[in-house]
């Protein structure tokens, strides 16, 4: 059996990234889009931690992934507050319906 190496983690993170990309592209539900963004941030985190383990960078990769998690928390709080505001205004969170700013 092959030893678990860097490529295993990179492939897992690639698939998670592609799933997140597909979610962002196909969802019309604003919360669904935010979940896709969370998947993409997670795949970046897996890469950071994997390179921190195999790339010889010490703790730098893990520290970056902690910053990413922190920013994801801030993003989720603000994003969901905006979604709730949109829901009160438009009675829906379908991103296609909120086209007031369309020129």
């Amino acid at each position: 059996m092959i030893e678990i190496g860097l490529h295993h983690y990179l492939v897992v993170s690639l698939i998670v990234f592609l799933a997140g990309l597909f979610t962002v592209l196909t969802r019309r539900n604003a919360i669904g889009i935010l979940m896709g963004v969370e998947l993409i941030l997670n795949s970046a985190n897996i890469n950071y931690v994997a390179f921190s383990r195999f790339g010889g960078g010490g703790y730098d990769g893990q520290i970056f992934s902690i910053f990413v998690i922190m920013l994801a928390a801030a993003e989720a709080a603000i994003g969901l507050a905006i979604v709730l505001g949109i829901y009160r205004k438009f009675e829906t969170i379908d991103v296609e319906a909120t086209d007031t700013l369309r020129g």
């Binding site: 678990i4 897992v12 985190n45 897996i46 931690v49 994997a50 921190s52 383990r53 902690i66």
Partner: peptide, 13 residues
């Protein structure tokens, strides 16, 4: 993903 961090010896993350 948390389990994968465990495999990568990143317990705090």
């Amino acid at each position: 993903a948390a389990g994968l961090y465990g495999f990568l010896l990143a317990d705090f993350v």
